[in-house]
Amino acid sequence: MEERTKTDLENLKKQNGSSVVSLLQEVQEKYNYLPEELLREIAKERNIPLMDIYSVATFYKAFSLSPKGKHKVVTCSGTACHVRGSEKVTREISRTLGIESGHTTEDGLYSLENVSCLGACALAPLVVIDGEYHGSMTSAKILEILNGHTAGKKENGCCCHDQGKKENDCRQVSLPRA
């Protein structure tokens, strides 16, 4: 792999005692997913069987082997959220972003995920966007938030600026209702 792997591996080699899980967590945080080549390199460098790494990577839901979106939208379908209509909210997000739960938009900006409980049942139905909790959601409210989210990115310039890309490189998710 290219240079990014090498520098990463240098860093990873420094923390010797860390387990596979914390290693993978770091990779996941950095790239938003676990690149296959990187896992292979890690296995070789750290002398851990690739199979062990792969087992751990597929066991935990926190790890993904395919690229995740830049912004994570998490909907809750726990009991409390379900009875208060999380299904409708999820459907609305799904329709707005044009993706099913567990998928990522084509431009790689949003990924939608459904979890069983977020542990904040008093706020049901709950949607978490990039770690920000939005409670008592309705279809109308979530649309507003999603619109605001994409619009906010436009105002502050492109959301991909920190990655050194040009503004035009970043395509916004087109929303049906502004």
Binding site: E36, L39, P49, L50, M51, D52, I53, Y54, S55, T58, F59, L65
Partner: peptide, 24 residues
């Protein structure tokens, strides 16, 4: 260590890493 368990629960199965032939 060419094969092992992946995923969990009802999706648990035995395969090689990335479902490709393992170098090991």
């Amino acid at each position: 260590k060419a094969i092992g368990f992946v995923k969990r629960g009802i999706k648990r199965r035995i395969t090689a890493p990335f479902a490709k032939k393992s170098e090991d």
